[in-house]
C-alpha cells in the first residue's frame, strides 16, 4: 500500500495504529507489507531456482546481470545480525551452490556474493537477502575502487573493533566453560561412535550434565567430526577433476 494514496485522515489513523502496536504486532504488520514475504508465501509469482523449508532462491526481476539470484530466508528478518547463526551458515552454503550453478551454466567469469545491511549500505527492501550476481569483466557491477589505508588508521580501527569483537566471541567461550564445570560426572551417550568416545576420555570435563549442555557439547564435537569428513571430501574433489569450468576460474590466477 502506498502511503501517498491515503487521505490525511487515513494516514493519521494509520500512524495512530502503528504507535499502539506491540512489537509482535508490528513484526506481523511488517511481514504483511513485505513483498518478499508475499513471494515466499506464493501470493506473488516468482521464478524459483531453489527451495527448501528454510530458504528460497529466485531470479531478481530487475537484475544487475542475466541470472542474478536472490537468496531469501523464509522467515522475515531485516538484517543479518537478527538471523540465528545456524541459518546464516546454511544460507552461505546454499549461496555457494547457487554460485557454482551460475559458473557452470552461464558464460561468466565470476560471481559476487553480496549483502547490504541497512539503508546506508544500499539495502532497498526490509527483507534480508543474499545476492548472487553473475559477473564479467567491465560490466560495471560493484566496482568500488580500493585505496591504501595507512598503518595508523588501521591500528585505530583494530583497537576500536577488537574489544567488541572479542566480547562477541568471549561470551560464548564463558558459557562453554560454565557448562564444562557444571557437568563433571556424567556418563557418555550410547549413540556416540568410537572416535568421539576417545575424545571424551581425553576431556572428561566436557561431558554434559543437563540436556541442553549435552546438546551443545555434542554439537561442538560434531563440528570436529565434520571437519574430518570434509577433509575426505577435499581429496575426493581433487581426484574428480571433472569440474572443468570451475577449475578454469580458479586457475586464472596462476
Amino acid at each position: 500500500m502506498d502511503p501517498q494514496q491515503l487521505t490525511p485522515e487515513q494516514q493519521k489513523e494509520m500512524e495512530e495504529k502503528l504507535k499502539n502496536m506491540s512489537p509482535e504486532e508490528l513484526m506481523e504488520f511488517q511481514k504483511q507489507q513485505c513483498i518478499f514475504c508475499q513471494i515466499i508465501s506464493g501470493k506473488i509469482p516468482s521464478k524459483k531456482i531453489y527451495e527448501d523449508d528454510k530458504v528460497l532462491a529466485i531470479l531478481d526481476i530487475n537484475p544487475a546481470a542475466k541470472g542474478h539470484i536472490l537468496l531469501l530466508p523464509k522467515e522475515h528478518y531485516a538484517i543479518m545480525p537478527q538471523i540465528p547463526e545456524k541459518e546464516i551458515g546454511n544460507m552461505f552454503v546454499i549461496a555457494k551452490r547457487m554460485s557454482k550453478l551460475i559458473l557452470k551454466v552461464l558464460k561468466v567469469s565470476g560471481t559476487n556474493i553480496f549483502v547490504a545491511n541497512g539503508l546506508a549500505a544500499g539495502q532497498k527492501v526490509q527483507h534480508f537477502m543474499i545476492h548472487i550476481i553473475p559477473r564479467k569483466e567491465g560490466d560495471g557491477i560493484l566496482e568500488a575502487e580500493g585505496k591504501l589505508i595507512d598503518e595508523e588508521m588501521r591500528g585505530k580501527v583494530k583497537s576500536l573493533i577488537e574489544e567488541k569483537f572479542n566480547e562477541l566471541l568471549g561470551v560464548k567461550k564463558k558459557v562453554l566453560q560454565v557448562e564444562a564445570e557444571s557437568s563433571d560426572e556424567e556418563k557418555e551417550e550410547p549413540e556416540e561412535d568410537g572416535e568421539e568416545r576417545k575424545e571424551e576420555k581425553k576431556k572428561p570435563s566436557k561431558k554434559g550434565k543437563k540436556k541442553i549442555n549435552k546438546k551443545k557439547v555434542v554439537k561442538e564435537k560434531k563440528e570436529n567430526k565434520v571437519e574430518e569428513e570434509n577433509d575426505d571430501k577435499d581429496e575426493e574433489e581433487e581426484d574428480d577433476g571433472g569440474n572443468a569450468s570451475l577449475d578454469d576460474i580458479a586457475n586464472l590466477f596462476k
Binding site: M80, P81, S99, L103, V108, S109, G110, T111, N112, I113, F114, V115, A116, N117, G118, L119, A120, A121, G122, Q123, I133, R135, K136, E137, L142, E143, V157, L160, I161, E163, K164, I249, L252, F253
Partner: peptide, 20 residues
C-alpha cells in the same frame, strides 16, 4: 555497527577475476 558508528555494512565475496 557497534564500535565504528557505522549505519550499515556490506558483506561481499568477489569470486573469480571477472568479479573483481
Amino acid at each position: 555497527f557497534e564500535s565504528l558508528g557505522s549505519q550499515g555494512t556490506n558483506i561481499m565475496i568477489q569470486n573469480g577475476l571477472g568479479a573483481g
